[in-house]
Every structure is written in structure tokens, then in C-alpha cells.
Design a protein around this nucleic acid. Structure first.
Lengths: 338, 338
DNA sequence: AGACCCGTTGTTAACGTTCACAGTCTTGCC
DNA sequence: GGCAAGACTGTGAACGTTAACAACGGGTCT
């Protein structure tokens, strides 16, 4: 028995003594090594229970070189998209027995991403997921800390990391095609910031769908994802004569557009049809309920962990994968025939 | 020079050899111990730079017993409130030089919280922040792993952990008082789930404000924070005759209420006034823009880290603190005189 | 019967850092 | 000139785990 003042948590050696075996046998039981006699295992387990032993993961990580921790670098986890993605990542990681260490960046510039990566590398993470929706972030992945498996979510082609993303181009196409199929002459677009790859993808899909039908693409209106920027774009659109259909690059901006239209007396969908992007939980209850393109953020998170674990747990040089999650069209009440 | 195939990252001993000092001196330089000669320090720093040495935080944690990692347990980080709080926590923690390890729970029941806490304790976190808005989560804090400093965010009184929270009662009062002061006879309430402390607090504030003016409190309508539940409550309210003012327990449900009113032709604020809670980024662009109660989630996150670090870095038994962040009233266009 | 294998267990040595302590070399001061 | 105090540096031993290897016993095969 230890002294009364022995507040030190029990270690493997204590368990070993209690069970009358060597510490190595305890280790074997803990790691489910096959070659341990059933009775011995039971005795060890009992001793563990009795002493309330918990294995020290730090010591373990020191010798195995694996921390069973994954790093996540993300941009503004307050936004619905990143928040959902990170949530999916976290759940998938924990289900696989990994911890998740998170770094949220305020602005994603090259040095910010580099710092975050270094920070995580110091902590000896086994792998890193970078939610890198901006071009600058994607570029920062080019000069990665070698040796640490990495997956980019929504990232570009830069560097040779695996990428998991939603097919933004297809999403833009879906939205635009829907509006054209209703009979609209052309479709206007309120786009996201130009340094966001997602914004570019949606623009590209919009243009492609328009081109396919031989329609002229009007000049897109610039937004920054915020409802306010959508509101301002909406005021501009409301003052134009020939606008009958608008594809807005995310639901928050679409809300702003709807608000501006309401203020100006433009009726949706009677006079103008609006399609959003993301399918945030609120969109269904906008006035009118918003037709939009759904991104399955949960799937993106799960897949990114799958790809990452394949790299971590597989051996040898990892193949660079590219996994694309398809978006889906959600029909509601904000679109109609012109 | 190491061999050509020497891919092993450099350790302290390598730096020491390179600089012609002992490993302990390298350690001293790294830890900014004062008693190192300037020239020696320079030589060590140079060697570190040359070899690209990075200190192994795992080995360090093993001996110091400090991982410089904080654990965060949260419920559904997809919701705006928790997401913003966790974001604030993460930023404040990193600014203080701590890593943040996150566990998101799907449902907060007692055993779920316990598991999460154990999980984090295994990882040897230096402290834990539990975002525990539900009664059951608050209860789970009662049987905490001893020895690990813990702070509850939005938690109740249970257990003897420090608490940082927004004054929900005051928020409920603010909303209700505003409506009464406009001249409404009474104020209806769409409440949050009954196992959420925040929901209870808002109900209490609403009742208190009503009682203060000697008004009868109508039966509150139950919601679950989702826009849909707000929508359903809104339909009920729309079918009642004497409803002129509604205080909705969060902005998402308020959106649902507005939607239901719009569908039924109930004009806001002309016929009915609506006040929300949270001030999510979207509320300003609802139709009409929503009068609401703002919670400063960022401040909550920052304060929780301050309290936690005070416990970690201070010595001796920590005093149990209780820090209350005041909510604020945001006036927009969804309220008017009856 | 002896060699050999395999299941089971123990012994010893890492892993890379910090801590405790013991030196050595200055420096200042009587 | 000697001595104490302090600055600076080095040595050895932790921290708690897993890896590598050795040792032992009983069974099987020849």
C-alpha cells in the first residue's frame, strides 16, 4: 500500500505490482496483444479497475510517435459552412478514436496558414485537415510541413495534397439551369469574394449553364457572403428593369437580396425568381422559402477524415486523392415562371 | 554530420553537439532561463536555426505534466451560439499559447458528458471548458474528474465549478419590458426546450417583467430552437385573436414565427410585434428586420478562458467564480405600438 | 529422446525532454 | 590574496510508456 498522502495517480508499474505481473504484461493487456493468458488478463483488468488506473497518453505518444490527434485549420468557424464541416470532421475523427485540435484563423493569408500548420506540427498531430476555401489558403498548402499527412477541404489544385470538396461548378450549373428551364431569358448573379474558390466555381457553373443555352451573361454583382452585401446587391438589382432571375452565391446574401426586394416592392417569385446556395437551416423559412443548392457538409467532413486516415494508417507514399461531393437542388417557393 | 539517410528530426542533443554545449543549456535557452551567457545563447540559437530543430512538446509534456492544451466540450457546434462561443474560446486560448482540443456532443446526456470529460482527461489537458447549456450537462459537472480546472459556460449552479454566462433572465426582462413599454397589454412567449437553462432563464425574465406590471402571463408555447418549431408556434399564435406582442426565445424560431405570420397575412409590426433573442447575423435582414436581444458570445468565450487560466496558473485551491455577461437590446423594425 | 516451435512472461533499453544538483568560473570586497 | 556570492554550465536521473529481445515451459515432429 502506498502512503496515505499518496495522491499520485497510479501508473503501469502500480497495476503490475497489484496484479503480480510485469508492467509489460499490463501494457500487453491494454494494447490487446493476443498472447496473454485469459486468467492473467483478468487479473490485470481487475487491478486496473481497483486502482482506477488510466494510461498516460503522453508517455505513450512519446514512444510511439503517434498522438492520435488530428489538427484542423479552419477559417471563421462562425459561418455555417465551415462550422458544419468542422463538426462533421470532429465527429468522424472521434468515431475513429482520434482527438481533434482546432485552429481557427481570422483571416487566411499565407503566413497565417503556415503558422497554424507549424503550431500543429509542434503538437505532433498525426494528420491535418485544412479547410481552405480561399485561394491564398490553398496556395499556402504548397509549402507544407513534409511528413504529415494532409487533406484540404474545398481547396484548390495547388500543392500535392488530397482534396475533398463539393462540386461548386455543378451547383452553379444546377441553379442556373433551373432558372432557365422555368423560361427566364437570362440569370443574374450575386457572387462571393473573388479570392474564394467556391465563389469562382459557382460563377463558372453559372456562366457555363448560360453559355450552353446561348445566353449572354450579365456582369455579376460582387458580395462578401454577408447578408448586408446581398442587401446592397439586391438594391442594385431592384432598380434595374430587366431582371427576372437571380442566382445568389449563398443563402445569407440571398436573404439580403430578398429583404431589398421586399423593401422596394419587388415581389418574389412573381416578378423575380431567386436561388440561393448552401441550404442553411433558416432558408426554408425565408419569405418566401428559398429555393437553393444544398451542400452536404457532414459528408465532406466525414470523407476528409476517411481520406486522411487512409493516408495515416496506410503505409508508403500516399496517393493524392480527389473526392468530389455532389450538391443537390432544393426546390422551394422563391422561383417561378417569368 | 549525420548520415545521408538521416531523416530523423533533430533533437536537443543534436543541437547541443552542434553548438558545443550540453543539452541542458539548449533547454535553458528554449525556456528563456536568465542565466545563459549572451554569446552561448546566440550559438545555440544559430544551431537550432541551422538544424531546423523544433522542440518535442510531447516529451516536454511528459515531464512537466502540462500539455498546454485546453479541452472544450460543446453541444452541437452547428448552432450559432455554441459555434460563436467556441470560436471565442479558441481564439482566446491560442492567444494565451494554449492548444484547444474539441469534443462536440450530439446529445448532451450525463454519460455523454462524462465520457467526453474522461476522454479529455486522458489526453492530459490542463483545463476544460464545458459549454453546458442543458440542465443534464450541468448536472454531469457535479461528478467531475478532480484535479482538472474546469469552467462551465452557460451552466447552472450544480457542482462547484466556475461559471461564465449571459444574464438570460435580464435578457427576457429587456425584451418583455420593451414590448410592454410600447403599450402592449401582455406579451406572449415562444420558449426554448425545458431542459435548457437558457430557455428557463428567458422564461423567468419574461414572467418577472410581466408580473412587475401586474400583467397575466399567458401559457408559453414550446419550441426547440429550430425555425420549424417557431413556424408552428407562429401558426398557433396567428389563429388567436388577442395576440399583439410575442417574445421568441431565439432568432431562428422568430424567423419561423415571422414566416407563419406572413403566410397567414398577419402584418409585423402593424398587427403583432415580435422580439427575438441572440442577434444572429441574419436577423437584421429578416422581413421585417428583427428587434432582438444580443448576446456577446465572443466575450463569453474570452472570459471563460480568463477564468480558466486564472485557475490553472494560479496556485492553491481556486475560488469558484461566477461571471455574468449582460445582454443588450437591439432595436429594429419588428416592434411597434399596438 | 532431442530439436524445435510457439505461447506466455519478464528484463532492459529506448523515446526527448526537464529537474535537481553539482560543479566551474567570475567578480567584488575585505 | 583569499573568500563568498553569484553567474554560468554540465551530469545524471527522472517522467510512463512501448519495443526488442531473452527466458521459460509445454507440446509436436522426426
Amino acid at each position: 500500500m502506498g502512503s496515505i498522502r499518496d495522491r499520485r495517480p497510479p501508473v503501469m508499474a502500480d497495476v503490475a505490482k497489484e496484479a503480480g505481473v510485469s508492467h509489460q504484461t499490463v501494457s500487453r493487456v491494454l494494447n490487446e496483444h493476443p498472447n496473454v493468458r485469459g486468467e492473467t488478463r483478468a487479473r490485470v483488468l481487475e487491478a486496473i479497475e481497483k486502482l482506477g488506473y488510466r494510461r498516460n497518453l503522453v508517455a505513450r505518444a512519446l514512444v510511439t510517435k503517434h498522438s492520435r490527434t488530428l489538427g484542423v485549420v479552419s477559417f471563421d468557424t462562425t459561418l455555417y459552412g465551415p462550422a458544419s464541416t468542422v463538426y462533421g470532421i470532429e465527429r468522424a475523427a472521434r468515431a475513429a478514436g482520434y482527438f481533434v485540435s482546432i485552429v481557427s484563423l481570422k483571416s487566411i493569408d499565407r503566413s497565417g496558414v503556415r503558422d497554424a500548420l507549424d503550431y500543429l506540427a509542434d503538437q505532433a498531430v498525426d494528420g491535418i485537415v485544412v479547410v481552405a476555401p480561399q485561394r491564398s489558403a490553398a496556395e499556402a498548402l504548397a509549402d507544407l510541413p513534409v511528413g504529415v499527412p494532409t487533406v484540404a477541404v474545398e481547396g484548390g489544385e495547388a500543392g500535392d495534397v488530397s482534396v475533398v470538396c463539393v462540386d461548386q461548378v455543378e451547383g452553379g450549373r444546377l441553379a442556373t439551369r433551373h432558372l432557365l428551364s422555368l423560361g427566364h431569358e437570362t440569370v443574374w448573379h450575386v457572387r462571393g469574394p473573388s479570392d474564394w474558390l467556391e465563389a469562382e466555381g459557382r460563377v463558372a457553373g453559372w456562366r457555363a449553364a448560360l453559355a450552353l443555352e446561348g445566353r449572354e451573361a450579365p456582369e455579376p454583382l460582387a458580395g462578401d457572403w454577408s447578408p448586408r452585401s446581398g442587401y446592397e446587391a439586391g438594391r442594385s438589382l431592384a432598380s434595374m428593369r430587366d431582371v427576372t432571375a437571380v442566382f445568389v452565391a449563398n443563402d445569407q446574401m440571398a436573404l439580403g437580396v430578398l429583404r431589398a426586394f421586399t423593401e422596394r416592392g419587388v415581389r418574389v417569385p412573381d416578378q423575380v425568381s431567386v436561388v440561393g446556395f448552401d441550404d442553411i437551416p433558416e432558408s426554408e423559412f425565408f419569405s418566401p422559402p428559398l429555393t437553393t443548392i444544398r451542400q452536404d457538409f457532414g459528408a465532406v467532413g466525414r470523407h476528409s477524415i476517411e481520406v486522411l486516415l487512409r493516408q495515416i494508417e496506410g503505409q508508403g507514399p500516399w496517393a493524392r486523392e480527389r473526392l468530389v461531393v455532389p450538391p443537390s437542388f432544393v426546390s422551394r417557393a422563391s422561383t417561378a415562371r417569368p
